[in-house]
Lab assay of single mutants.
Amino acid sequence: MLDDRARMEAAKKEKVEQILAEFQLQEEDLKKVMRRMQKEMDRGLRLETHEEASVKMLPTYVRSTPEGSEVGDFLSLDLGGTNFRVMLVKVGEGEEGQWSVKTKHQMYSIPEDAMTGTAEMLFDYISECISDFLDKHQMKHKKLPLGFTFSFPVRHEDIDKGILLNWTKGFKASGAEGNNVVGLLRDAIKRRGDFEMDVVAMVNDTVATMISCYYEDHQCEVGMIVGTGCNACYMEEMQNVELVEGDEGRMCVNTEWGAFGDSGELDEFLLEYDRLVDESSANPGQQLYEKLIGGKYMGELVRLVLLRLVDENLLFHGEASEQLRTRGAFETRFVSQVESDTGDRKQIYNILSTLGLRPSTTDCDIVRRACESVSTRAAHMCSAGLAGVINRMRESRSEDVMRITVGVDGSVYKLHPSFKERFHASVRRLTPSCEITFIESEEGSGRGAALVSAVACKKACMLGQ
Rank of each mutant, 00 (worst) to 15 (best):
G318L: 13
G147W: 01
A384L: 04
R397V: 06
G178M: 03
P66K: 12
L306V: 06
L20Y: 03
D267K: 05
D205G: 00
F133Y: 05
V427M: 01
P59E: 01
G80R: 04
A387V: 04
V406H: 03
R155W: 06
R333S: 10
L88D: 03
D409C: 04
L47P: 06
C230N: 04
L415S: 07
D247W: 08
T332D: 05
P66L: 14
P432G: 11
E319N: 11
T332F: 01
F23C: 11
R7W: 07
E319D: 15
P153V: 01
E443F: 13
L309M: 05
T118V: 04
G464L: 11
S280N: 14
A379V: 06
L292A: 14
L463N: 12
R46H: 14
W99D: 13
T118A: 02
L415Q: 11
M235F: 15
L30N: 11
V335G: 13
S375A: 08
L301E: 04
R377C: 06
L88C: 09
M197R: 02
T332A: 06
G227A: 15
A208F: 04
V199E: 02
L288G: 14
L271P: 06
L352V: 06
R191L: 03
E17T: 06
V154M: 03
G94Y: 04
V277F: 00
G385V: 02
V277A: 06
V222Y: 01
E196I: 12
F438M: 06
L146S: 01
L122T: 03
G448D: 04
S263H: 06
Q38F: 06
S353C: 06
V91F: 14
R303Y: 04
Y273G: 10
Y125S: 04
M115W: 02
N204D: 03
A425M: 11
C457R: 12
I19A: 14
D158I: 01
L47C: 14
E395N: 07
H50T: 06
D187W: 00
T228I: 04
Q239D: 13
E9K: 14
I126P: 01
S373F: 10
S151H: 02
R7L: 11
A208H: 00
I348E: 07
P111D: 12
C382N: 00
V181M: 06
R325Q: 07
F171H: 02
V33Q: 09
Y297M: 07
G117C: 08
L307H: 08
P111C: 11
K136W: 06
R303M: 06
M197D: 00
L243P: 09
L184K: 02
R394A: 13
C213Y: 08
D73P: 08
A370H: 02
L314D: 12
S453I: 04
L25W: 06
V305T: 15
G464T: 09
E40M: 07
H141P: 04
V62H: 05
V89M: 12
P432S: 10
M393K: 14
C457H: 06
G178F: 03
S127P: 04
E95M: 10
N204H: 04
K420G: 10
Q337K: 13
E440N: 11
I390G: 04
H218P: 03
G81H: 00
Q287G: 06
F419V: 02
T354Y: 14
L314S: 11
A173T: 01
D124K: 05
F269A: 12
D113P: 12
T65G: 14
N166T: 10
L185I: 05
V226T: 05
V406F: 01
F148A: 03
V302R: 04
V338F: 15
V91Y: 07
V427L: 08
D267G: 13
K414N: 11
Y273W: 13
E331A: 13
G444H: 03
R308K: 04
E372M: 11
S281H: 12
A188K: 00
T209Y: 03
E52T: 10
F171Y: 04
I110Y: 00
L146I: 00
I130G: 04
S54M: 10
V199T: 00
M57L: 04
E237M: 10
G318W: 07
I159A: 02
W257F: 04
G162A: 14
E442T: 14
S131V: 03
T209G: 02
T118N: 01
L270G: 03
F419E: 02
